[in-house]
Amino acid sequence: MEAQKKYYLQLADNALILSHRLSEYSSHGPFLEEDLANTNVALDLIGIAESILEQTAKIDGKGLTGDDLAYRRGEHEFYNCLLVEQPNTDFAFIMVRQFLTDAFHFYFYSELTKSKDKFLSAIAFKSLKEITYHLRRSSEWLIRLGDGTQLANDKTQHAVNTLWKYSNEFFTENEVDIEMKKSGVGVDLKEVKSLWSQKVNEIFFMAHLKIPENDFQLTGGKQGNHTEYMGYILTEMQFLPSKYPDAKW
């Protein structure tokens, strides 16, 4: 039960926090069409997060709601990977973060369609339609950024160099991942990693981008230990429910 709940939260929180970061970018896009595409992805992701959080609250059986889980948990109770909470430094950072996550989501949710958990399998099927588009968009952008002007290539390579150290946490198995995989609910992250690496190599090759030689990796989000950014995200996101705990919105 606890493992299942935490597994659900890992998935929901990745979507919720990345959606939040994207929503910060509204009205900041390089042109209108891209501003809208960005918001669209934010909307898809919050939709995924909402479905999973509501289901989590339901199986938890303590009378909580999806909103309670989003707006009333403390930082240590969020289990998203560190990558998704990284800031919108510039469009290159946004798109590299997006591509690395989209590729993970795509292969992860593709595997999750085979889950013995009917809810997870159904949400995976539903989400894949959107995630397929997300991955196509961010892959195309990575190529435009890497294979266009030298300035854009430099900026994007800088984003890759900075963000790469957060990319392996998606595939770092914790006890919950292992337990869920054994019971046929969760997916084999090694399998997902192998497909993800292939995709990353393919797109990086086309975009003239390099994987950093220093393969040092940071993890912690999946255990509730976050970067300094997370506190600010939650302070802002949870501001109204925290300040007015009795209010219904």
Binding site: P30, E34, D90, F91, R144, G148, T149, L151, A152
Partner: peptide, 13 residues
């Protein structure tokens, strides 16, 4: 801030 993004999109196209 978006100028370099628009430029690279055009260059790539």
């Amino acid at each position: 801030e978006g100028a370099w993004v628009r430029e690279t999109a055009i260059a790539s196209a």
